[in-house]
Design a protein around this nucleic acid. Structure first.
Lengths: 406, 406
DNA sequence: GAAATAAGTCAAGACAATTGACTTAATAAG
DNA sequence: CTTATTAAGTCAATTGTCTTGACTTATTTC
C-alpha cells in the first residue's frame, strides 16, 4: 500500500520546546534581556517567560546579571546566555587535513586539533579521526570540566556533493569519503549525535552564529575553498535541498570568459583555491599552502593577478545571480585564504553588477568579507549541533515519528 | 533604544492551529484517510485526531465517506476535504489584461472574469479591478451560495520585481503599478485579506496545489511570461526572500550566446514571450496573442525556430543552475504560451546539462512541463489565500505580535 | 509624600493533547 | 458455529503549559 504522506502534528511539549529556543535565540541576538523584554519580544506573557527563564536558569543555560534601573518602575533583571551551558565538537575533513574544534554555547573556541589522514581511505581514516576527536574531548574537559555531560553533538563538515558519483580520479579520494557512511561510524565511535554537512554550509553556520550573518534571516555565504560552494541561510535556517546538496554552486556550468558558445565548464574551474593552485603550480595538499599563498600575494605576481581577474569576473556574475535568485539581505564571501588575497579578490569583484539588491534602504552591504580563517569551517561544523539543539526551527516544534511503528 | 529582535513564541492555540492544518494538508495530499490513518501519519494520538476531525467536520471543511472494510478489525471511516469548505478570489494583473478567478478549497475554478485596464494608471485602474472582482464574487455566489461567508482572501499576482525602480519607459506602465499600494487599496475596496506576489510565485502556487508540484516539498517552477521568473517551493513553502523579490531570474545578467566577454544582458532578453514577440514583430498587448502564437507555431517558421534555439540554450543553463543551487526534486516549466510551443521548447532544452540532479534514484523527472494555460497565474493567485489559510507553515504556529503594544 | 509606572510573582483557570481502559465490528482459526 | 485476534474509534480522567487578573515591589516624577 502506498505510504501516507503528511507533516507531523505537535503538542504542548513542542510549543514549550520552541519557546525555550526562542528565549535562547533572543538572548543570543540581543546580548542581554530582562524577562519583561523577552515577554514583549516573543509575544508571550510575563508569566510564561518567567517560568521558562527559571527553568533555563536551573538548567544552567542562562544567568541573571545585576539589576538595572532605567526610569520609573521596578528595576529589571537582565539575563544572558551562560557560555558553559553547552558544548559541541566540530570536525572538518578536507582533502589534505582534518581538524577538530570544541565550542561552547556562544560559539567560543575552547580546543582544537589537527591531523593528516592516512592514505588508506575511510576505513583506516576513521580510526585517526576518532582518536583526534578523543584528544579534543580530553582537551575540552580540561578547560571546561562541565562539558563532560553538556556535549550536545558532533558536527561534521566535508566537501560535497554527497550521494553523487563524483570524479573517481580525484587524487584526495574525496569520492570514497563522500560515499562512506561516516555519520554512522562516528556516532558509534563517539556516542554523540552526528550530523554531516558540506563545507560551505558549515562556513555559513559559523557566519550566522558569530560572523557577518549574525542575526540575519536571509543571507548567502559564498565559500571559496578547494572548490566553491554557497551556504544558504533562508528564513533563518540553513537550506539543504532535497538531497542535502543545495548550494554546490561550484558545479554550475557556465561559459568561460573567453569560451565559445558550446563550451560550458564548472564555475570552480575558474574560481576556487584549486584553480589558483593550478595557475601557481602549487600543490593544494601542501600543509603550508596558506602561508605560501600569503607570501606570494604580498609580492605582486602576474599570475595571481590573472587569477584574481578571472575569479572576480566569475564571482561578480555569481553574486548577481544569487542576489537575483534569493533576494538576500547580504552576501558574505568567505573561505580559507589569506585575508590579503581575500581583500584583493573582493575589491576586484567590485563594482558589482546591477541587480534588485540595489535599493536605497539597505542596512547590510550587498557583498562583504567573512571569515578567511582556515579554521572557520571547523568552527561552523562545531556550531551546527549548538544551532540544531538551541535555535528555533520548524522541525523542532513537530513531533518526531516513533520509529518502527505500524 | 534599539529594537529587540526575536522570534515569536507559541502556545496551545498555535499547536492546535498547526494540527488542524496538518490534517487538511494530509487529506489534500492523500485524497482520503481515516482517523487512524491520520493519527499514524501525523504522529498524534487517535484521540487528538478524533477531536480535530470532529471540529473540522463541524466547520464544514471535511466530511466522512462510507466505511471501508479492509482486513480484520472495525471498518474505518475515511474522510475527505469538502470543496465547498472555503473559497478564494485570485486576481492577475498583467501588462495588457486583468483576470479574476474564484476557486474552492481543492483548487477547482468556479468563476472567472477578464477586463482590459484603462490607460490611466493605478488610480483609475483600481476601480476597474474592483468592479471586476465584484462581478466575479457575484458569479461565485450564484454557483456556490455558501461562499458568501467562506471567502478566505484575495490573492493578487502581477509581474515583479516590487519596490525597485524599474524601467519607467515600459509601455504598459508596470513600474507605476509596482510602486502603487495596491494591496491596501484592494483590501479597503473588497473587505478581504489581500496578499500580493509576483506571477512566477503564483504559477508555482498553482503547480503546488493542483499541478506538477503537487505533494512535492522541493520544487522550482520556471514561469515564462512576458518576462521570466521562478517560483521557489522550498521545504513545502513558497520562498519570498528579504523583499519579496526572490526568483526574479529574468534579471540574471549573463553573457549572450554569441556575446563578447564584457557583455552581460538579462536572461529575459532572450528567453521570454517578450523576446519572442520581438522576433516575430508581434504586439505583446495583442489580446489574441495566444491564438496568434499557436497559429504561427503550427506552421514551421524559421524565426520561431531561431527563438526556440536561443531560448532553449539559455533555459538549459538556467535549469542546470537552479538544480545546482537548490537541489530540488523537480523543475517545472510553465507559462502562458500555447502547449505546442511549450512542447517544442522543452524538447529543445533536452538533452539537459549534467548536474547533481542526475541520480539513479529519481522519482520525478528533472524537468517537466507544467501549466501552459494563460489562466494558470490567476488560479495560482486564487490558491494563495487557500494555501495561506490551510497549509501547515512555521509562521502559522507562532503567536502574532499584538500590534501597537508598548 | 503621593501618584505614576514598570518588573515581576501568585494562584486559579483554560485548553489541547495524552493515557489507558473500553466498545464495536470485522476477519481468522479451530 | 464459536472463539480468538485485530483494528477503529470512544470515554473519562490526567497532564502540562500558557493565560488571566490581582497583587507586590521598587523606582522616578510631581
Amino acid at each position: 500500500m502506498r505510504p501516507i504522506r503528511a507533516k507531523s502534528g505537535t503538542n504542548q511539549e513542542g510549543a514549550s520546546a520552541h519557546n525555550r529556543r526562542v528565549m535562547i535565540d533572543a538572548l543570543r541576538l540581543n546580548g542581554q534581556l530582562s524577562r519583561a523584554d523577552l515577554a514583549r519580544a516573543t509575544a508571550l506573557t510575563k508569566q510564561a517567560v518567567s517560568n521558562i527563564i527559571e527553568e533555563l536558569e536551573r538548567d544552567g543555560l542562562v544567568a541573571s546579571l545585576a539589576a538595572v534601573r532605567k526610569g520609573r518602575g521596578q528595576p529589571s533583571t537582565p539575563y544572558r546566555l551562560v557560555p558553559e551551558g553547552a558544548f559541541a565538537i566540530g570536525l572538518q575533513i578536507d582533502r589534505h587535513v582534518t581538524r577538530t574544534i570544541a565550542v561552547d554555547l556562544v560559539g567560543a573556541v575552547l580546543a582544537r586539533g589537527e591531523a593528516n589522514l592516512p592514505a588508506g581511505g575511510p576505513e583506516s581514516g576513521t580510526e585517526t579521526i576518532l582518536s583526534l576527536i578523543e584528544r579534543t574531548r580530553r582537551q575540552l574537559t580540561e578547560v571546561a570540566p562541565q562539558s563532560r555531560d553538556r556535549l550536545v553533538g558532533l558536527g561534521v563538515a566535508m566537501p560535497g556533493p554527497f550521494g553523487i558519483d563524483t570524479d573517481p580520479n580525484d587524487p584526495w579520494m574525496m569520492a570514497v569519503w563522500q560515499r562512506f557512511p561516516l555519520s554512522e561510524a562516528l556516532a558509534i565511535g563517539t556516542g554523540l549525535d552526528v550530523r554531516l554537512q558540506n563545507d560551505a554550509a558549515a562556513a555559513a553556520t559559523a557566519e550566522k552564529m558569530i560572523g557577518a550573518a549574525h542575526g540575519l534571516d536571509q543571507a548567502i555565504c559564498i565559500y571559496l575553498g578547494y572548490g566553491v560552494g554557497a551556504g544558504l541561510i533562508l528564513d533563518g535556517e540553513l537550506y539543504r535541498g532535497a538531497n542535502g546538496n543545495a548550494g554546490e554552486i561550484g558545479m554550475i556550468l557556465s561559459r568561460p570568459r573567453n569560451g565559445t558558445e558550446d563550451q560550458r565548464a564548472p564555475l570552480e574551474h575558474r574560481a576556487s583555491i584549486a584553480s589558483l593552485c593550478k595557475i601557481l603550480d602549487l600543490d593544494p595538499a601542501d600543509p603550508h599552502l596558506y602561508r605560501r599563498l600569503d607570501d606570494i600575494t604580498a609580492a605582486s605576481n602576474a599570475r595571481i593577478a590573472a587569477w584574481i581577474a578571472e575569479a572576480a569576473y566569475e564571482l561578480r556574475g555569481a553574486v548577481q545571480t544569487l542576489e537575483t535568485i534569493f533576494d538576500p539581505q547580504t552576501i558574505v564571501l568567505c573561505g580559507g585564504m589569506p585575508p590579503g588575497l581575500a581583500r584583493q579578490l573582493i575589491n576586484a569583484i567590485h563594482p558589482l553588477l546591477p541587480s534588485i539588491a540595489e535599493r536605497r534602504t539597505r542596512s547590510a552591504p550587498r557583498l562583504q568579507l567573512g571569515f578567511t580563517d582556515p579554521w572557520a569551517v571547523a568552527i561552523g561544523a562545531a556550531a551546527e549541533p549548538i544551532s540544531r539543539t538551541f535555535d528555533p526551527s520548524f522541525s523542532a516544534i513537530l513531533k518526531t515519528r516513533s520509529v518502527g511503528s505500524t
